[in-house]
């Protein structure tokens, strides 16, 4: 209970400053909307059914991209982590791709895949892939060699060693990567939706800017913060439930 209260302390302080800033007219009305305006806009968008569409569109994109990223990262991360030859062959290239800023992909993806869903989902997948991949490779590298030896003494096939020993042992690292990757997916979502979309929270941001509606922009920002936080908490809960076997400090 106290911990929950503590976590709300900073948001409450921000809210107070926000209300004061609105009441004292520190900013022009077309720059900053007071919380009451933002709330009203949120209600209005919801009543018109627009907000639901935006939230749904964005959520579907995020989870589609994240699912693709997760599947690819599990396969590639395991192979690279286990096999030095594979690591030498593909890891440098992947690290170079990782260094490309997210927005740099946008023109190319639009050119290749058009302005449809696939370009957006691909961009999100690129963003979500690397945290999962990097963490899983590190996790596989860190798997206790002695446990692998047990599996070998038991005569397990290399594939069974990977699925029954290496992946379970690296699972906590995979989950850490997945948690960061999902957050990253929301970041890349905005990059994707800012440029070409007619729906979604990123679109709400662009629209708000174009028609000078700070309340609409703030609705989108608040919802993005909420979505990111919800995903983070959900992943943390999964982590706690599935990695109770680790013998760490927490």
């Amino acid at each position: 209970m106290r911990r929950t209260l503590l976590a709300w302390l900073v948001p409450a302080a921000i809210l107070v400053v926000w209300i004061v800033a609105g009441a004292a007219h520190w900013f022009a009305p077309d720059q900053l909307a007071p919380p009451s305006r933002v709330l009203a806009e949120l209600g209005s968008l919801w009543q018109r059914g627009l907000l639901q569409q935006d939230i749904l569109a964005s959520t579907v994109r995020v989870f589609a991209g994240f699912a693709i990223a997760l599947a690819l990262a599990v396969v590639l991360g395991t192979l690279v982590g286990l096999n030095r030859a594979v690591e030498r062959a593909i890891d440098p290239t992947l690290q170079a791709i990782r260094a490309v800023p997210s927005l740099a992909w946008v023109p190319l993806l639009l050119l290749w895949l058009g302005i449809g869903e696939s370009a957006k989902i691909t961009l999100i997948a690129i963003g979500a892939f690397f945290p999962v991949y990097v963490n899983l490779v590190a996790g596989v590298h860190g798997v206790d060699r002695k446990l692998v030896e047990v599996a070998r003494v038991l005569g397990l096939h290399p594939l069974a060693v990977a699925t029954r020993v290496v992946l379970p042992a690296a699972f906590p690292s995979l989950l850490v990567g997945a948690r960061i990757g999902l957050t990253q997916a929301w970041l890349f979502l905005v990059a994707a939706e800012l440029l070409a979309s007619t729906r979604g929270l990123g679109f709400l941001l662009t629209e708000g800017q174009q028609i000078s509606r700070p309340d609409e922009i703030l609705v989108a920002i608040l919802l993005l913060a909420l979505a990111g936080k919800l995903c983070e908490s959900g992943m943390l809960a999964i982590e706690r439930r599935t990695t109770a076997w680790t013998d760490g400090l927490r």
């Binding site: 002695k146 446990l147 020993v165 680790t246 013998d247």
Partner: peptide
């Protein structure tokens, strides 16, 4: 068949 017991238990910690 050969069975091997190591100096450390080497149990799989997640099981």
């Amino acid at each position: 068949d050969v069975g091997y017991v190591f100096q450390e238990p080497r149990l799989f910690p997640w099981l």
